[in-house]
Design a protein around this nucleic acid. Structure first.
Length: 617
DNA sequence: GCAAGGTC
């Protein structure tokens, strides 16, 4: 008998369905000579320090460098402390029984580094010796699954992938556990937990450095002049092309404006008119991060809330797999899109849009099989939702609405720029939407609209002279970059802090971002739990503890996003066959260095004991 | 008491 093991129940069900296996057992599905079982993500983790004999937190143990790592069952917190998760234990027993009976194992965990690790940790923990083959597919449609089974790979083809995954896991443990204990112990605060890690610390650093930049920003005053030219009763606003440092300069420009009150009936000379049509393509489909950002902007949901709501919708089969990092779908999935859109015709908000889209040519911007990684973009499933809570409905609508947008036509607008001469030069700009296209779905205002922009501009021609009915001197101040909120932080994590607005360019940097779609919400929650940051309205603001930790580590490698970038590069080399021990030795060297540095530097930490978490009474 | 990774 062959056993197929998937990363999660939903995938096992999808595969079993293709085989026509329908007998549901406890923890697996049976039929047609196969059994289909599953994990729930990582069932096993690297054992905690005490399991190597490092009892309690002690400087004498540092750095902790276990000669051989052990695996232990995933833990869960109960009132009696931290224990093996009973549901995980039970599933492992089931898997063990099935592996014992198996002639061959087919590995169907997600097609990626962590998916490989999830299986291998189980396989080695259970001391299984059975041969295994690898199913490698990036979409769960029937055809993709069948094709994948025709193309099963030898399990050993993925040994180097496992090596890179294993290195990632061990390195995070070594650096995180040691750095955390080193800083906590050297802080001198009894029971303090000052955690550090490859992902959480650069994230904290980003929040702190932006906060300090914002707080220390010295606004500069500058001046502008505005005029109101009048075209046959239609008045628009134009702003001086230059900003002025002093009020006097601006006043001089203002005085030279040839307005009606100053005795100039037609003192505004149209120097230039430029009207350009612009096509604005629809946004890509949602991945988890973009959905979390939108839900934060629209509804103020935290990243964690959005993930929980989505997981719930997923478990109720209303949306596809949520923890995806892809904003694309393959052609096979695209083939099913018209039917999904038709289903949305019942939707109270988008029904009309869905109907209209049903008879139009669909935009294929979000269709690109090469950009589908372990999972495709989030879609609705075609199941009809009922009895959703307001929050569930809101998130569901964001998924459904984005689908309609993504497959909609471009928005066609005309961007007009007018240059008016009246003493000095003045600019006016305005945007007129000709064909709303995808923008008709939500009918939102553009988020990047500047406050000086005119909604519509009158038709004027070059050489024309217009009366200027008003003029004013404007006093303005330069503004600092805003504090991070969850939406802007999530976006920044995708590109490891580099500011890239272009959607597609940002996408290309996916592999060098901080954290993964599945973990970013929990990174934010960890920083909050440690009392490093707090939510203040929508903003994420560091506490004195957070700032103090940042001050100690800000120049260290562990606070730089580049650390992840460097690791990823090395892990990728390992995947293509480079030495594992070289990397492991470098990590050990780094662990020793960071540990001793933190033991020395932690003494300079100044935090009131009450502001650290985990303080024992 | 501690990492980052996955998922019910």
């Amino acid at each position: 008998m062959k056993v197929i093991i998937a990363e999660k129940p939903s995938v096992a069900r999808d595969i079993a369905k293709v085989f026509g296996a329908t007998t549901k057992k406890d923890g697996y599905i049976e039929g047609k000579g196969f059994t289909f079982t599953w994990a729930f993500g990582h069932l096993l983790q690297l054992a905690a320090p005490q399991e190597y004999g490092y009892y309690g937190w002690s400087v004498q143990h540092l750095p902790m460098l276990p000669p051989k790592f052990k695996l232990s069952i995933r833990k869960v917190k109960t009132k009696d402390g931290v224990v093996d998760d009973p549901s995980v234990k039970k599933q492992l027993d089931t898997i063990q029984k099935l592996f014992d009976e198996a002639s061959e194992i087919i590995v169907a965990t997600d097609a990626g580094r962590e998916g490989e690790l999830i299986f291998r940790y189980i396989y080695y923990y259970l001391k299984c010796k059975k041969p295994f083959k690898r199913l490698w597919i990036s979409s769960q449609t029937d055809e993709a699954i069948k094709e994948g089974f025709r193309n099963l790979k030898p399990g050993s083809d993925y040994d180097t992938l496992f090596n890179s995954a294993h290195c990632r896991s061990q390195s995070d443990w070594l650096v995180g556990m040691n750095a955390t204990q080193a800083l906590s112990l050297s802080s001198g605060i009894r029971g303090a937990v000052l955690s550090l890690g490859r992902v959480q610390t650069p994230t904290l650093a980003m929040i702190c450095s932006r906060y300090l930049e914002n707080k220390n920003f010295v606004p500069e005053t500058f001046y502008q002049v505005s005029i109101h030219p009048d075209k046959d009763g239609q008045v628009f606003k134009a702003i001086s092309a230059e900003n002025y440092k002093t009020k006097e300069e601006a006043q001089a420009v203002l005085d030279q404006v040839q307005d009606v009150d100053g005795g100039f009936p037609q003192g505004g000379h149209i120097l230039q008119v430029e009207a350009k049509p612009r096509k604005e393509p629809p946004p890509l489909l949602h991945d988890l991060s973009s959905l979390q950002q939108e839900a934060n902007k629209r509804k103020g949901f935290t990243a964690d809330q959005t993930l929980n709501i989505l997981q719930n919708l997923y478990e109720n089969k209303l949306v596809t797999y949520p923890r995806t990092g892809s904003r694309y779908i393959g052609d096979d999935v695209f083939a099913g899109v018209p039917a999904l859109i038709e289903k949305l015709e019942q939707h109270p908000l988008f029904g009309k849009q869905a109907t209209a889209l049903g008879s139009a040519t669909l935009n294929k911007r979000s269709v690109n099989a090469k950009k589908v990684t372990d999972h495709h973009a989030v879609l609705t499933t075609g199941e009809n939702p009922h009895q959703l809570s307001a929050d569930q409905q809101a998130v569901y609508d964001m998924v459904a609405g984005r689908m309609l947008e993504a497959f909609h036509q471009d928005c066609i607008k005309e961007v007009t720029k007018i240059v008016v001469q009246s003493g000095a030069k003045f600019n006016a700009s305005g945007t007129v939407i000709h064909t709303a296209g995808w923008r008709s779905v939500f009918n939102d205002k553009e988020d990047d609209k500047k406050d000086e922009e005119n909604a519509t501009l009158p038709k004027v021609t070059q050489g024309e002279n217009l009366p200027i009915t008003a003029k004013a001197l404007l006093e303005k101040q330069t503004k600092p970059r805003p504090l991070y909120n969850e939406a802007t932080l999530l976006k920044a994590l995708e590109t490891a802090g580099k500011e890239i607005d272009d959607e597609e360019l940002r996408y290309a940097m996916k592999d060098s971002g901080l954290g993964t779609p599945a973990t970013r919400a929990s990174i934010i929650e960890t920083l909050i739990k440690r009392n490093y940051i707090i939510r203040e309205k929508k903003n994420l603001v560091p506490t004195t503890t957070g700032i103090a930790v940042y001050e100690v580590v800000k120049n260290q490698q562990i606070a730089q996003a580049e650390l992840t970038g460097n690791w990823e590069k090395r892990l990728e080399e390992i995947r293509s066959g480079a030495s594992v021990t070289d990397f492991q030795n470098e990590i050990k060297t780094y662990t020793r260095a960071i540990t001793s540095e933190l033991l020395a530097q932690g003494k300079s930490l100044k935090i009131p004991a009450a502001q650290t978490t985990g303080v024992k009474a």
